[in-house]
Design a protein around this nucleic acid. Structure first.
Lengths: 217, 217
DNA sequence: TTAAATATTTAGGATAAGCTAATAATTTTT
DNA sequence: AAAAATTATTAGCTTATCCTAAATATTTAA
């Protein structure tokens, strides 16, 4: 059907698309996948030929309906496998990503369906991210990550995913705690790091940090 | 570590090696993997450079100790995943192969270990094949497949893996039943089909058939 | 023991997916 | 609005893995 590489691009575009309304840029994809921009241009052309994305030279790409369906199928598999690893095989939530990156490419509709059933059709994965169903529908997200907010959005911190002491110390240093109001001043396309305003002070947060901070809007 | 393709070659050579004492031929590998002989020659050279096989031009290959270890690691994963699919996800034994062919290439030592533990450290897979442990040791095989016999070996049919009516009709037509004595007259290198003598009659059996017939020696 | 048949290897291409360096388009700054 | 900076694309290479066709070894048969 699709190569692993194609699936990785579709997934990357899907995730990046949730951060901007306009086309996903070549450079953001290349940063996300850790490849060179020239390689992205090439792949993006191939995806466009296969009608998985709409591509406007110099203006980035957007997933087509078909492209989005496939991206969601991969996201679904990724999150189901993460759930399996944590819930059944005693992995820690921070150990599963790499393995799920491999497992998400296994091709078998029956496998996904049976795995979903076996796990009790979970709605959220171990990171709190919603798991799309077989039709690509995702449940409402009760928790939203800070990383999911867009430029200009405001929110209030409601929880932290990573409870490691180093992370909590880091938060304290940045004056972030439960209930802290934040406003997204800017998102760096390159590494998805975020500048947020907290009580008239601006602080820089890495994607790793914003992925682990939950907010209410 | 190794590519999927390399792993597939190692596994193929491992299986074929159990059928002959001398080197595994280019053509038998190419038949097993459904590739052209020229491609095999090329890959085999690469495996030899990596010290995974000993390769003598025109005289086939044999796994080195390292090569065998890796082949066994792949076989272990394949059989553990087959067990998982059948025991936990309600697959039928004849549906699992393709999926396990993909899953066997997932790279994570922890995953294999946890999966093994989760399944209760099974000794045999759903086809009755022994599962190597983490060190590559396999339990004694109580059942031996007809396909595992070599030219000249004799055996007595002790069971059949596939219970489909078409298979049983096929066996009846060939005069094979429980207790039937067979002698291996010849094994075709090309497709691993076997000529066996049953009461002075010689019959041809495909690899698919001999894989599903268990014998005592 | 040579000729014919078969098996294996080599040579030369193809495709997917990556890279670097050079060029071109867009965006930002002055 | 032109110059400078940034971003994207193109051109040309590389590697892995496969292929076909041609050449070479080995094996079998006459």
């Amino acid at each position: 059907m699709f190569t692993q590489s194609e699936e990785n691009y579709l997934k990357a575009i899907f995730h990046l698309q949730q951060q901007t309304d306009d086309g996903v840029s070549t450079s953001s994809i290349s940063a996300h996948l850790d490849t060179k921009a020239a390689s992205v241009t090439e792949m993006v052309k191939r995806l466009a030929e296969k009608k998985l994305v709409d591509y406007q030279k110099y203006y980035g790409v957007q997933l087509t309906e078909t492209g989005k369906e496939h991206a969601l199928a991969v996201v679904r598999k990724h999150r189901l496998w993460e759930s399996f690893l944590v819930d059944r095989l005693h992995f820690n939530w921070d150990e599963v990503h790499e393995v799920a990156e491999q497992l998400e490419h296994i091709k078998s509709i029956k496998l996904v369906e049976e795995l979903d059933k076996f796990l009790g059709r979970p709605a959220y994965d171990p990171h709190g991210d919603p798991i799309p169903d077989a039709h690509g529908n995702m449940p409402e997200v009760p928790k939203k990550k800070l990383s999911q907010l867009r430029k200009g959005d405001r929110g209030t911190c409601k929880g932290f995913n990573d409870a490691s002491s180093s992370f909590l110390k880091y938060l304290a240093k940045q004056q972030i705690g439960l209930g802290t109001a934040v406003e997204v001043v800017n998102i760096e396309k390159f590494d998805e790091s975020m500048t947020v305003r907290i009580e008239d002070e601006e602080v820089q947060l890495s994607k790793t940090a914003t992925d682990n901070i939950y907010v209410d809007q």
